[in-house]
Simulated scan of single mutants.
Amino acid sequence: EEGYLCPFIHLQEKKKQAREMQKALEEKEEDFKERMKDISCRWRDLHAKEAELKIYMKKSERILKESDKMLIQALDKASKEKTMQKEAELWRAKKELEALRNKHQRLFNRVQRYSTFNRYLEDVVKISQFEEIQGVIWHYKTLERMRKDLLQRQQGHKEMSEQTRVLLGQYTAGKEAEILQYEDELLELQLRFDQAQKDVLLWETCWANIQDTTAKKTQKVGAIKMAILNLFQ
């Protein structure tokens, strides 16, 4: 019986070990499935990121191409603008040079005129009381200053005369207005006086008529009284 139980126990242990191994295998398989599932998710994410990266790379490549194109255009534009700026600066330099030449010519002509004037002043010094040209110039400046003062005084007198004329005109206009007002008042008084004379003449005529009528009535009354007295006598 012991010989029979030993194989049975050994078999049970083997079965137990087999079940444990099966369970461990199933657990490992489940863990493997979970890991494979996680790897699949990561793989899909990786593919998605790879697709996004490809799109980003294409977009970046397009942006780089556009940037290169814009850079080339900007450089070309800058080169053209620089060329135009150089041409403008060259044109301005030519104009400034032309202006300087004209100014130099004007100064040269002025120097020539002053040279003639200087020789003229030297001749003036020789025949005048002045000992040097500077004295002639100072005397000329003094005369010029006196002339300006005289002109300024004349202008002041002219302005005062003009102001006096304006005030006189205003005063005359005011007096003429007063005279016209007095003439209008005098005319009105004359008209009123003439009307008063007409009224007096009219009232005198009326008074004379009244007196004449009264005298006639008095005469009639007297005649009536005399007739009455004669009747009673």
Score class of each variant (00 low, 15 high):
63 I>Y: 08
119 R>G: 03
105 Q>S: 15
63 I>T: 06
91 W>I: 11
123 D>R: 15
84 M>R: 09
112 Q>E: 13
73 Q>R: 09
56 Y>C: 04
120 Y>K: 08
51 A>S: 06
113 R>N: 13
113 R>F: 10
70 M>S: 08
56 Y>T: 07
65 K>Y: 06
35 R>V: 02
109 N>M: 14
111 V>I: 13
115 S>Q: 10
80 K>L: 09
44 R>E: 14
49 K>I: 04
39 I>D: 12
88 A>N: 04
124 V>T: 04
39 I>W: 08
118 N>Y: 10
43 W>F: 12
31 D>V: 05
102 N>Q: 12
71 L>Y: 11
86 K>F: 05
109 N>I: 09
88 A>E: 06
67 S>P: 00
34 E>R: 13
52 E>P: 00
127 I>N: 05
50 E>V: 13
86 K>V: 04
92 R>P: 00
37 K>L: 07
97 L>E: 15
77 K>L: 14
58 K>Q: 11
119 R>M: 07
108 F>H: 10
72 I>Y: 08
83 T>A: 14
57 M>K: 15
85 Q>V: 06
43 W>L: 14
40 S>C: 02
117 F>Q: 11
104 H>Y: 09
41 C>E: 12
90 L>C: 01
105 Q>W: 06
99 A>Q: 05
82 K>L: 13
33 K>M: 01
75 L>I: 07
48 A>S: 10
47 H>R: 13
93 A>R: 13
60 S>E: 07
101 R>N: 12
98 E>R: 09
61 E>D: 05
51 A>E: 10
67 S>T: 09
115 S>P: 00
57 M>G: 07
86 K>Q: 12
65 K>I: 03
47 H>G: 02
51 A>N: 02
65 K>P: 00
99 A>S: 05
92 R>E: 09
75 L>A: 08
107 L>F: 10
125 V>C: 14
57 M>P: 00
51 A>Y: 01
42 R>I: 03
92 R>W: 01
73 Q>A: 10
100 L>W: 03
122 E>K: 15
119 R>V: 06
32 F>W: 06
109 N>Y: 08
35 R>D: 02
84 M>W: 08
116 T>D: 10
58 K>M: 10
69 K>L: 13
97 L>Y: 04
76 D>Y: 02
94 K>T: 05
96 E>C: 06
86 K>R: 08
47 H>P: 00
49 K>Y: 02
59 K>A: 11
73 Q>L: 13
43 W>I: 12
61 E>F: 03
57 M>V: 11
53 L>P: 01
125 V>I: 15
124 V>S: 02
85 Q>Y: 11
119 R>Q: 14
88 A>Y: 05
120 Y>E: 14
46 L>H: 11
34 E>C: 04
54 K>C: 08
51 A>R: 05
59 K>Q: 08
80 K>E: 12
113 R>Y: 06
79 S>L: 11
58 K>G: 01
131 E>H: 15
89 E>V: 02
127 I>A: 03
35 R>H: 04
59 K>N: 06
67 S>H: 09
75 L>S: 07
94 K>L: 09
111 V>W: 09
89 E>M: 10
98 E>T: 08
48 A>D: 09
95 K>Q: 13
127 I>K: 12
34 E>P: 00
52 E>I: 04
37 K>V: 01
119 R>C: 04
77 K>R: 15
74 A>P: 00
62 R>E: 15
105 Q>T: 14
126 K>N: 07
84 M>D: 14
99 A>F: 03
95 K>T: 11
111 V>K: 15
99 A>G: 01
123 D>E: 12
36 M>R: 04
